[in-house]
Amino acid sequence: MNDDAATLMQNQKIILFDAQCKLCSAWCNFIINNDANTIFKLCSVQSPKGELLLTHFGFSTIEYASMVYVENGKAYTQSHAFFEVVKQLGYPYKLANIFSVLPNRFNNWSYDKIALNRYTLFGKYQYCRIPAPSDAAHYL
């Protein structure tokens, strides 16, 4: 295990996201607005820390097909990542977990349809968004 990645992950709940993706940035804003206790840390996949974590888990550092959620040394992707995050946000957001009873194959297919078309559907920043200083506590 890479000591740097292990140190970075220690006692952290990390959401890795594509900072060029407008949908992903909206998701981060949602997390910031609804994670009152700052239990999650956001980390851009384009950042050195993001690349370190992606490499540690064997994910591409060039193509980003899924948000990645890291907790207790385990990486969750696709709909699994989404459900792991929303169930910890409390009501009413944890109610979205009702959809986790649907077959994984369907949930991941749905997730992939949105994720793989996110730039077309929602747009793309030409640069990585810089977080506001007031949101610094939410970032890794």
Rank of each mutant, 00 (worst) to 15 (best):
K94L: 15
I15M: 08
L53V: 06
F83W: 01
K41F: 06
F122A: 10
Q126Y: 08
E63H: 14
T120A: 14
L54K: 09
T7M: 05
L52H: 12
V68P: 05
Q12F: 12
E71R: 09
D35Q: 12
T61D: 08
E84C: 07
Q46P: 07
Y91D: 04
S110R: 12
M9F: 04
C43V: 02
N72Y: 08
L8V: 04
Q126S: 14
C21L: 02
S110G: 13
C28E: 00
E71D: 09
V45L: 09
W109E: 08
L54T: 06
N108S: 11
A75C: 06
C24D: 02
D112I: 11
E71G: 04
S25Q: 11
N97Y: 09
V70D: 00
S79T: 06
C21P: 00
A75V: 05
V45N: 01
Q46Y: 12
A75L: 03
D112G: 07
I130V: 13
K124I: 10
L121I: 11
T120S: 10
L89Y: 00
A5M: 01
N97T: 15
S79R: 04
C28V: 15
Q12A: 15
A132R: 15
D18R: 11
Q10L: 08
L95W: 02
M9P: 00
C24K: 04
I62M: 14
Y93N: 04
S60P: 03
